[in-house]
Nucleic acid binder design. Structure first.
Length: 832
RNA sequence: GCCGGCGUGGCGGAACGGUAUACGCGGCGGUCUCAAAAACCGCUCCUCUCACGGGGUUAAGGGUUCGAAUCCCUUCGCCGGCACCA
C-alpha cells in the first residue's frame, strides 16, 4: 500500500471549516468551568496580515488551546482597531473613502486570520470604526467628561505639518512625527485632554501583576515621579512695567528635587514661554529678550528636548531679580531654552555647584558658583577650578542656619523650614502629562460635544449617541478636520436650549478606542450598554495578554488608566485590566534585519502558508527561538520543521496501517516507550506553561526520535498498547502548536471526536525517572568518569564506587580525599 | 548621558550553580536508485595523539564557590527605552 503523504493543503481548510461549524471556539457565558480570558492585541486593518501578526497570534493561540485542553473555559476574541491615520492617508492618495478602504482591508484580513487556524471566537468580533462600537467609545468619553477627567484647554500641541494633525507626546519620536518623520512644530489650539496625571501615583503600583520587569520599568520611567519641594521665590516687577495700583512683586514658584541646595542658588531661569517673562523684563533687556523668545519659538519644544546633551547653553537675562525666600538673597532672572514650560513650574532655581545643567549655564554666562553641599571628607575647593557640578548629597556648608546638617537630613530640614515660613512645601512632580486626545482628522470617533453660543461646550445627551461619522467627506489638507466642511454634520442644535449650534469637529485619538475594547469583548452585542456588569465581572480581568513591547507606554498605560477611572466611577470592579502580560519578540528578515519593503526581505505569510501549510509556519515560527525574543527567518529552518511534521505523519500513519492487533503485544521496548511518554508530557507541559514553545517542540522532536529508535529491532512494539498511548499522547501534545495535522491524524487513528476536546495528558512523576541513572564523577570540579548506578543508590554507595574508580584514582594522583560532595542522582565531586 | 536587556559551534538556539553545545539548520559519509530528488542511518566545537587518552572553549579580564555560560566586579560590543524632567 502506498504510504500517504503529508500534504497540509489537503486537510487544513477542511478542519478550519469544521471547527468553525462546531462552534467549539465560542466562549459561553454560562460555561461552569473556570474562565480564562486569552487576549491578543487586535490588529490595525492595514491591508495584509504580516508575519509579525502570525508570530503573535500563533503563540497566543497555542497558549489558549493549551489552557482549553487543561479544562478552562477560554475566551479568545479577535477584532480590528479600525480608526486611524493610514485610512485617511489612503483616502487622500487614492481618492477612496476611509470607510471603504478600511472595510475592504478587514474583509481581506479576516480571511488571512482564518488561515492561521487559530481558535478565535468570531462571535465576539469587535470593529472599532462601526457605530455600534464607537457609540460606546463616545459614551465612555462622556463618563470621563461627567467626572471631570476630560477637559478642554488651549494647549501647546505637537503639530505635524505633513499629516496636518496634532500628535500625542507618545507619537513624537526624536522631535519628529512617528509616521512621516517630519519635524514637529508647536501650535496653540483648543484641545481635549484626559486627566491621566490624576492616576500617576496609582499607575506606579504594579502589585499583583505578572508583567515583564522591563515594561513596568518603562512605565515607571515614563510616569517619572520626582520627590522634592515647591519653593516660592518673589520677583520684583520692574517699575516701568507696573500698572497703577499693581503690587511691586509677583510670586515665582519652582519645583526642585534638591531643596537642600537652596543656599546655592545664584540665578533663576524661566522657560522662554513663561507667562511672566514680559512683565519681568526691564526696558533695557526688552529687545534681547524678545528676539530670544522668538528664536526659541521657531524651534519646537520637542526639538529642544531632542537636542544633544552637549548642546551649548543659551539664554538672556531679564534685567530683574527674585528674592530667595530662604536666604533672602537677590538673584538675577534669566530665560533659557533648557528650561521647559511643560515640566514643573516652567522655572528653575539655578544651583550651578550641584546641578550639571546649571553648572554649564553658569560657565557660559560667568555666573557665580557657590558650593553648599560637601561631599564626605572631600576638602572644599574653589568652584572656579571644577570641571563639572557635584550632584551628590552631603553635609551642608555655606548655608546659614543649615550649616553642618548631614545629607540624609538636609532635604527634610529645608522643607520643614519653608513650610513653617509659608514659602513652599514638599511636593511631588511627574514627567507624565495629560493625554491629548483631539485629532484634527476625519477617520476617528467624533467627540460627542456641541458648541452653543450661550451654553458653551455641551455634551451630547447619551440617548442621542452615536454622533455618526458621515459616510463620506472631502479631504483637503487644510489643517482642520474634514468634518468642518460637512454641513449636515457640523450644524446642529444645542441640547440645552435648542438654538443653532455646531459640533466638535475634531475626532478622538484611536488609542481611546483601544483603551476599553477588552471590556466590550465580554459583551460585544449589547445595544443598551457599553457592557453588562455581570459579564464583565465574569470575564475580566484579562488573564493573559500577548502583544508587542512597542505599546508599553501608550496603549498599556492608557488601558490601565481607563480601568482605574471607570472603577472610580462605579462602572467596574477591577483595578487592573491585564493580569499577565507577555511581549512576543520580533521576526526579522532572513538577513537578520527588520523586515521592510525597501530591504526586500519581507516574508509574506500567504506565500509560506501555501508552501508549508499553516502548521508548518506556526511550528517554524515557534521553533525559531524563545517566543519573547523572535529571530531571523530562515528558509532552511522552516524546511527542517516541516520535515519534522512529515516524520510525525509517517510515524502515525505507519501506526494506523499496522492497526491489525493493536494492543495485542507486550514488547520489551514498551517500558522505555512508556517512560519516554511520561517524561515528554512533563517537559512539554512545563514548557507550554512558560510559553517556551521552542523547547516544547524540541521535546516533541525528541519524542518522535525516541519512538522511531525504539521501533528498531522491536517489530512487535507497534502492536503494544503502550506504543499506541505514546502515539495518542504525541498528537495531544502537538495539538495546540500544530492543530490541523494533530486533528487529521487523530481522526485517522480512529477517533470521531476532536483532538482539541481532549483533556491534557497527565504524567506520573515516578515514571519520569529511569531505573538506572548516570552519575558524573568529578575530581576537583573536573569530570573524570561517569557511572551507571541504580536509581535508588545511596550516597555511601556512590562514594564507594567513585573512590574505586581507576580514573578518579589517577586524577587524584595520590592526594588525600578532603571532601566529598554528592548531588543526589546526578553528580559526585571528589575534592583532594 | 541615564535606565534596562543581551553576547554560547559555520548558523538559529539548549542548559534548577552540577557531563556546555539538547533540538533544528548547514556540512561530510552511507543506504535505497540506472541516476537524481525524497526518505532513512552515521559523523560533525577547537586542539594534541596512529590510537588509548589529554588539554582548551560560553565577548575579554578578574572574583566568590568543591564546582560558574549561570552569581559579583571591570572592560568591550550589540539591542531596546528615555533623553537638558530641575
Amino acid at each position: 500500500m502506498a504510504r500517504s503523504k503529508y500534504q497540509p493543503a489537503e486537510f487544513e481548510p477542511k478542519w478550519q471549516a469544521r471547527w468553525a461549524e462546531s462552534g467549539d471556539a465560542m466562549a459561553r457565558d454560562d460555561d461552569p468551568r473556570p474562565k480564562f480570558y486569552n487576549l491578543v492585541m487586535f490588529p490595525y486593518p492595514s491591508g495584509d496580515l504580516h508575519i509579525g501578526h502570525w508570530y503573535n497570534y500563533t503563540g497566543a493561540d497555542i497558549f489558549g488551546r493549551f489552557m482549553r485542553m487543561r479544562g478552562y473555559n477560554v475566551m479568545q476574541p479577535i477584532g480590528f482597531d479600525a480608526f486611524g491615520l493610514p485610512a485617511e492617508n489612503a483616502a487622500i492618495k487614492r481618492n477612496i473613502q476611509p470607510r471603504t478602504w478600511t472595510l475592504a482591508n478587514i474583509a481581506n484580513m479576516q480571511q488571512q486570520l482564518r488561515r492561521l487556524g487559530a481558535a478565535w471566537d468570531w462571535s465576539r468580533e469587535v470593529i472599532t470604526c462601526l457605530p455600534d462600537y464607537y457609540q460606546w467609545t463616545q459614551w465612555v468619553f462622556l463618563q470621563f467628561y461627567k467626572h471631570g477627567l476630560t477637559y478642554r484647554t488651549k494647549a501647546p500641541a505637537n503639530w505635524c505639518p505633513t499629516c496636518n494633525t496634532t500628535l500625542a507626546n507618545e507619537q513624537v519620536v526624536n522631535g519628529a512625527c512617528e509616521r512621516c518623520g517630519t519635524t514637529v512644530e508647536r501650535r496653540e489650539i483648543d484641545q481635549w485632554l484626559m486627566r491621566i496625571t490624576k492616576y500617576a501615583d496609582e499607575l506606579l503600583n504594579f502589585d499583583g501583576l505578572e508583567w515583564p520587569e522591563k515594561t513596568r520599568l518603562m512605565q515607571t520611567n515614563w510616569i517619572g515621579r520626582s520627590e522634592g519641594a515647591e519653593i516660592r521665590f518673589t520677583a520684583s516687577i520692574p517699575k516701568e512695567n507696573r500698572k497703577r495700583g499693581q503690587k511691586a512683586s509677583v510670586e515665582l514658584p519652582v519645583f526642585t528635587t534638591r531643596p537642600d541646595t537652596i543656599y546655592g542658588v545664584t540665578f533663576f531661569v524661566l522657560a522662554p514661554e513663561h507667562p511672566l517673562v514680559e512683565q519681568l523684563t526691564t526696558p533695557e533687556q526688552r529687545d534681547a529678550v524678545q528676539s530670544y523668545v522668538e528664536q526659541t519659538r521657531r524651534e519646537s519644544e520637542i526639538e529642544r528636548m531632542s537636542a544633544e546633551k552637549s548642546r551649548a547653553k543659551t539664554g538672556v537675562p531679564l534685567g530683574s531679580y527674585v528674592k530667595n525666600p530662604v536666604s533672602g538673597e537677590q538673584i538675577p532672572i534669566w530665560i533659557a531654552d533648557y528650561v521647559l514650560m511643560s515640566y514643573g513650574k516652567g522655572a528653575v532655581m539655578g544651583v550651578p555647584a550641584h546641578d550639571q545643567r546649571d553648572f554649564e549655564f553658569a560657565r557660559a554666562f560667568d555666573l557665580p558658583i557657590t558650593q553648599v553641599v560637601q561631599n564626605g571628607d572631600e576638602p572644599l575647593t574653589d568652584p572656579a577650578t571644577w570641571d563639572e557640578a557635584k550632584p551628590a548629597h552631603g553635609r551642608l556648608v555655606n548655608s546659614g542656619p543649615f550649616d553642618g546638617v548631614p545629607g540624609d537630613e538636609a532635604t527634610k530640614r529645608v522643607i520643614a523650614w519653608i513650610e513653617e515660613h509659608g514659602v513652599g512645601a514638599g511636593s511631588v512632580n511627574y514627567r507624565l502629562r495629560d493625554w491629548l486626545v483631539s485629532r484634527q482628522r476625519f477617520w476617528g470617533s467624533p467627540i460627542p460635544i456641541v458648541y452653543c453660543e450661550e451654553h458653551g461646550a455641551v455634551p451630547v445627551p447619551e440617548d442621542q449617541l452615536p454622533v455618526r461619522l458621515p459616510d463620506e467627506a472631502e479631504f483637503r489638507p487644510t489643517g482642520e478636520s474634514p468634518l468642518r466642511y460637512v454641513p449636515e454634520f457640523l450644524n446642529t442644535t444645542c441640547p440645552i436650549c435648542g438654538a443653532p449650534a455646531t459640533r466638535e469637529t475634531d475626532t478622538l485619538d484611536t488609542f481611546l478606542c483601544s483603551s476599553w475594547y477588552f471590556l466590550r469583548y465580554a459583551d460585544p452585542h449589547d445595544e443598551e450598554h457599553a457592557w453588562d456588569e455581570k459579564k464583565v465581572a465574569k470575564w475580566l480581568p484579562v488573564d493573559m495578554y500577548i502583544g508587542g513591547p512597542e505599546h508599553a507606554t501608550m496603549h498599556l498605560l492608557y488601558a490601565r488608566f481607563f480601568v482605574k477611572a471607570l472603577r472610580d466611577m462605579g462602572l467596574l470592579n477591577i483595578s487592573e485590566p491585564f493580569t499577565r502580560l507577555y511581549h512576543q519578540g520580533m521576526v526579522l528578515g532572513p538577513d537578520g534585519q527588520k523586515m521592510s519593503k525597501s530591504r526586500g526581505n519581507v516574508i509574506a505569510p500567504d506565500d509560506v502558508v501555501t508552501r508549508y501549510g499553516a502548521d508548518g509556519v506556526r511550528a517554524y515560527l515557534m521553533f525559531m527561538g524563545p517566543f519573547d525574543q523572535g529571530g531571523p527567518w530562515n528558509n532552511q529552518g522552516i524546511e527542517g520543521v516541516s520535515r519534522y511534521l512529515n516524520r510525525v505523519w509517517t510515524l502515525v500513519t505507519d501506526y494506523v496501517e499496522a492497526s491489525e492487533g493493536h494492543g495485542s503485544a507486550q514488547s520489551s521496548a514498551g517500558r522505555e516507550v512508556e517512560r519516554l511518554r511520561h517524561k515528554t508530557i512533563a517537559r512539554v507541559t512545563s514548557d507550554y506553561e512558560g510559553l517556551r514553545f521552542n523547547t516544547a517542540l524540541a521535546g516533541m522532536m525528541e519524542f518522535v526520535n525516541g519512538l522511531n529508535k525504539a521501533r528498531e529491532g522491536a517489530d512487535d512494539l507497534i502492536r503494544d498498547a503502550r506504543y499506541g498511548a505514546a502515539v495518542e499522547t504525541l498528537l495531544t501534545l502537538l495539538a495546540p502548536l500544530a492543530p490541523h495535522i494533530a486533528e487529521e491524524l487523530w481522526s485517522r487513528t480512529g477517533h470521531s471526536d476532536s483532538v482539541h476536546q481532549q483533556s491534557w495528558p497527565t504524567f506520573d512523576p515516578a515514571m519520569t525517572v529511569d531505573d538506572v541513572i548516570t552519575i558524573v564523577v568529578q575530581v576537583n570540579g573536573k569530570v573524570r568518569d561517569t557511572m551507571q548506578l541504580p536509581a535508588d543508590v545511596t550516597e555511601a554507595q556512590v562514594r564507594e564506587h567513585a573512590l574505586a574508580s581507576a580514573k578518579v584514582g589517577a586524577a587524584l594522583d595520590g592526594r588525600e580525599l578532603r571532601k566529598f560532595i554528592y548531588v543526589p542522582g546526578k553528580l559526585a565531586n571528589v575534592v583532594g
